[in-house]
Nucleic acid binder design. Structure first.
Lengths: 64, 64
DNA sequence: TACGAATGTAAAAAACATTTTACATTCAGG
DNA sequence: CCTGAATGTAAAATGTTTTTTACATTCGTA
């Protein structure tokens, strides 16, 4: 599953740690998701989309 | 986390088992999600939204 | 180049999602 | 009321996500 998180995070001038603390997860979690080690939970995905003012479907792309 | 899956499933005239086999999960998984025992993975949430021709944000509602 | 800041990574443990098997309950139609 | 179909539920096993702690690497810039 691909995602645009790094790109949108940088557009906002945030560090991985900033995103992490805003969403109450650890920096390692944000790092792992950006580097596609695994997909986030649904709840975290929705909170990420909201933070970046986009939708889950725009932020994450299902492998068909 | 609330969701509209049961309502949309019935609108399509599908059984829990139909949804399950379409998405390659078990009936118990669909049942647990409809009854909000737990939230699905991001991948399953996106596949559910696609099946019901809607978005993750319309199908699932974050508790604020 | 040297420094600090940001990012990458790893291992173990905890928390959570899914499967499998099996049985119980509900519900609509004959 | 009976029956079969659909749904609900439970426990154990497995796989995945997240945390914690700790250290390594990269990057910009003084």
């Amino acid at each position: 599953m691909k995602n645009n998180i790094r790109e949108l995070r940088k557009k906002l001038g945030l560090r991985q740690e900033d995103v992490a603390t805003t969403l109450n997860v650890t920096r390692q979690t944000i790092n792992a998701i950006e580097n596609e080690k695994y997909s986030p939970t649904l709840e975290l995905a929705m909170r990420l989309a909201k933070l970046f003012d986009t939708t889950v479907e725009e932020l994450f792309h299902l492998d068909e």
